[in-house]
Design a protein around this nucleic acid. Structure first.
Lengths: 181, 181
DNA sequence: CTTCGATCTGACCGATCGGTCAGGGTCTGA
DNA sequence: TCAGACCCTGACCGATCGGTCAGATCGAAG
């Protein structure tokens, strides 16, 4: 009576995550994923409409939390918005650092695709909020360096405990950010 | 008497730089470059042994300066090494931000290729030097975030004057780095 | 006029890409 | 027993990739 639910679909997701993390999204072929799962490429495309659908599913929860953060930022102004944005982003980076690592070095390419246009807009608002003074070049530079640096590297610290990583990133951000007003 | 040196080779280099900056190294085909130059793909491969040779030539000067920085860092210890590394890297990022932008989002992939293994090693020593205390996780995290963030974003500030960008990055680095000893 | 090297072209190569398709098992419920 | 849904395969598709090659063009030198 034990319903043998085929685990292939989950296997594909975890295999894809592993491969994406090593060779990137573009650098990973459907054949690579299929080989790692131990099935045919056609089987992969049976469970997912196309390659992008695999990535989208891997990112679904991350995107959800990112949108929630965007709304929380929008509810604040000035220094409060800056704090919410910076701390919220650090939390998100720590929590989803494995997922973010999948995209290491492909943010800019992927964000330019129409499917991710709304994420592009969210990240622009995020930069503005963290900058505090979006019209001041030095503030924008600081914000961009911090956000891009965290996004680009957080995946490297898979073995650092969440709390330790969060504390280190928060301390860095607080030291680095210029206070608003 | 004016020797009409064919400018095709230079055209290829500038066209490749333009395309790499927009669609990345992997995302740019030899056909793309040839189309932009207005010649055949075979002409591109007449002037360059292969695709990688184009990138190597575009990066030659950057790599040279990076190696010089590595040697200068090696001649110092502790806080002095940290200062030399951080300020040297900021200088390099500002000066070569157009070239660095060509690689945006492809550092990790390209560095893993055997041809760039020595650059990989240099960047590891750079991180250690900037961290100051390489054995302390929070110091390594700070260094990696700053270096990756600067490398990843400096190309975005093509329209910011060199001096202004350098000042902003130096101020950020000084605020963010934990002092050694 | 002929030769020769430099420059460039179009046709072609094998490999790989994402994706499609017809069909074959296998399990389940009627 | 049989229909049908589910899961999966191998063969195949057109497109594109980096790269090769024989030969055309052409200016300078002899």
């Amino acid at each position: 009576m034990v319903r043998v639910v085929p685990e292939t679909r989950d296997d594909i997701l975890t295999a894809a995550a592993r491969r994406f993390a090593v060779t990137g999204y573009r650098g990973t072929s459907l054949q690579d994923i299929a080989r790692e799962v131990g099935c045919s490429k056609a089987a992969v495309l049976y469970h997912f409409a196309n390659k992008e659908a695999i990535l989208t599913e891997l990112m679904a929860q991350l995107v959800e939390v990112l949108q929630a953060l965007d709304e929380r930022i929008a509810a604040h102004r000035g220094a409060a918005a800056q704090r919410v944005a910076a701390e919220g982003f650090v939390d998100l980076a720590v929590r989803f650092r494995r997922e973010i690592a999948l995209l290491r070095g492909e943010f800019s390419e992927l964000l330019n695709q129409p499917a991710f246009a709304h994420i592009q807009r969210i990240s622009e608002r995020l930069v503005d909020a963290v900058a505090g003074h979006p019209e001041r070049p030095s503030a924008r530079i600081t914000a961009l360096v911090l956000l891009a640096g965290i996004a680009e590297t957080c995946g490297e610290f898979a073995d650092v405990p969440d709390e330790e990583l969060r504390a280190a990133l928060l301390a860095l951000v607080r030291r680095a950010l210029e206070p608003v007003d």
